[in-house]
Design a protein around this nucleic acid. Sequence first.
DNA 1: GGATAAGCGAGACGGTACGTCCTGTCTTCAC
DNA 2: GTGAAGACAGGACGTACCGTCTCGCTTATCC
Lengths: 204, 204, 204, 204
Amino acid sequence: MVKKPAPDATRRSQRSRRAIYEAALALVVEEGYPRTTVEGIAARAGVGKQTIYRWWSSKADVLLEAFLDLGEQAARQAGYEPYSVPDTGDLAADLKAVLRATVDELVDPRFEAPWRALAAEGLVDEQLGREFVAKLLEPQLDLYARRLRAAQAAGAVRPDVDPRIGLELFVSPLAQRWLQRTAPISHAYTDTLVDYALYGLAPR
Amino acid sequence: MVKKPAPDATRRSQRSRRAIYEAALALVVEEGYPRTTVEGIAARAGVGKQTIYRWWSSKADVLLEAFLDLGEQAARQAGYEPYSVPDTGDLAADLKAVLRATVDELVDPRFEAPWRALAAEGLVDEQLGREFVAKLLEPQLDLYARRLRAAQAAGAVRPDVDPRIGLELFVSPLAQRWLQRTAPISHAYTDTLVDYALYGLAPR
Amino acid sequence: MVKKPAPDATRRSQRSRRAIYEAALALVVEEGYPRTTVEGIAARAGVGKQTIYRWWSSKADVLLEAFLDLGEQAARQAGYEPYSVPDTGDLAADLKAVLRATVDELVDPRFEAPWRALAAEGLVDEQLGREFVAKLLEPQLDLYARRLRAAQAAGAVRPDVDPRIGLELFVSPLAQRWLQRTAPISHAYTDTLVDYALYGLAPR
Amino acid sequence: MVKKPAPDATRRSQRSRRAIYEAALALVVEEGYPRTTVEGIAARAGVGKQTIYRWWSSKADVLLEAFLDLGEQAARQAGYEPYSVPDTGDLAADLKAVLRATVDELVDPRFEAPWRALAAEGLVDEQLGREFVAKLLEPQLDLYARRLRAAQAAGAVRPDVDPRIGLELFVSPLAQRWLQRTAPISHAYTDTLVDYALYGLAPR
DNA sequence: GGATAAGCGAGACGGTACGTCCTGTCTTCAC
DNA sequence: GTGAAGACAGGACGTACCGTCTCGCTTATCC
């Protein structure tokens, strides 16, 4: 099998890379993902198409990296340690606070458009989906898992509970409502989710 | 605004309609959604492209109807009352049984391929997403809501719990794991979900 | 071979026939021949497509009959004997008079559009071309041939001249200039043609 | 008005251009002009449709250039100076010789099919018609005009005759007979045309 | 005068081609 | 040897018509 010689990353134009990120994100927000094309990104970035195909394998791939970069930039600006679940000792309050912030973030179109696009692409394209989960989803979920483990140590969560499953009780419902638009989301809603998740549906 | 005169549905060819359904589903299963084209569906169904565009607005629209039709056919064969949540009096057991069956179903490629494709398309195309939810998701969720309400009447679920939210505690995690492949699914997993959802994470 | 039973002409709707003629001619004048479609003719005539296909084999066929009908109508109005070459005894004067009238007629768009369309179609479609020539061209040329024969009898044309060829010396140049737009046409031009044709190019 | 940026002709693929010419001419000869499609030309030439639409505006336009190129090639092979009217001093003989050669050429299907198609298209599409006349017809007619002017200098044609009109007396009849199939053509016919044209129809 | 069969308006159908858009590759030239 | 530029082969898009067909509805004999 004849393999293309890998391009020399050390000579890569950072100027072009950034321009492509910006163009990709802007187009997805302005035009929507399906109407965003590699050609359009190249034109807007003032870049040849080949420069995109040399470094990425598809427009989804470009968008994924662009979106990750956006997150890193935001993190850098916010003084690092951007997303984390606080630990005030009150588990319910901590979770509610973080989920409320998440709800607020989910409505920002600069965030929503690329996220939806990547999530959608990942549903159908398994390879991209795994990358999307590993790089974007998993890190977030880990923060909740860590907090739950701390709560277990403090006795606020039963010791036999699997934190990786436990967190899904409040995270997945929010994710589904938002992504699939099965119902509206709100602070009240996420508060309720936390309460149900911690204390269950059955009478005590 | 120039409006196309609506086609006369009474003169519609049922033969073609069925052939299109079958072709669309088969192609999505065999080739994958992105490689499925309107042209391909038309060719496989032995139909003119215009016949597709006359009755549907996009390949996603075709697939949605085809999939709904598939469900109806399956229901008819199964002697109606296809999907329902049983009520043996034991809420946990009933939910676990249904979710186990669901897990089994989710791996059938005849089901998985179109469902993923429609879900993905619905994430990005709001109009289609709402139709997808209303016609495919909501009816299923209703069954759980009904069962939870019955459980409330029987005292097995706290009366102040909102069933529409409560059901999400076990349904959404399964949905997310399967759709986004965040983690594997199994009978053990859904059993655990039901337990956590009913009795909470906090110690009793 | 299974042959379609010929339609019963006695039950044919004259109303539809006339409406189709009018629609065809109007569309060719207004939209041009290539943009005139069978569907468009049917719609404008308030007629089903099948009614056209029942009686004609192509849009060119429709247009040919429509144009012939137009000619007959014009003839009927003009009190029959519409086109003819007069015989005042002065051959040159007679030919010039008729050709001048022809030049005037050739600029009428109601005449020009269908004629050009039919001529063009006839160049490529031999069958239609022969019909076009037989029904539209030949009758006109015959009038000239007859006049030339009369002139031979009167001694104004050499007896050994073949009238069918002789007439082409002034008719064909006008036809070519007009059809192919090789040069402008005018009364002066046709007068000159007649002079050259009768007396030749070589010095006397 | 939004104008497409003109494509860069210096980077044009000559390989494709020639393949398109050949495919277009072959298809017109083999299938006939109406059954020749842009798609068919592209397929036969092993070329994308866009490559055709990038450089030409219609199939007629392609064919016109292809035919002109064919002429140039033939000229190049024949050692340049392909078509000309000889001047032996005997005007009648010279004209007869050229017209006889023309008659022979008109029956070659490699010539006839594209020529008819272009002529037909030119009758209806004025822009194409003017190009057809300017590039294909006019140069040929000029040769006759030149020969007639030489004959005037030699006293073989009356000095007051307009050569541009005079040549039509024998050229246009042949053109019309061939194009419109009003009557068969032959060497005898063109000989007669020359005689009539030079010496007129009226007795001397 | 009631049956029956044809022409008719309408338009859905299987197809073909259109002209456009975009993909991913390749080539050219500038830096 | 990367990058901007963009031509290229390919292929799907959604539209426009083709010529055939089927559907009810009129209409016009013919029994």
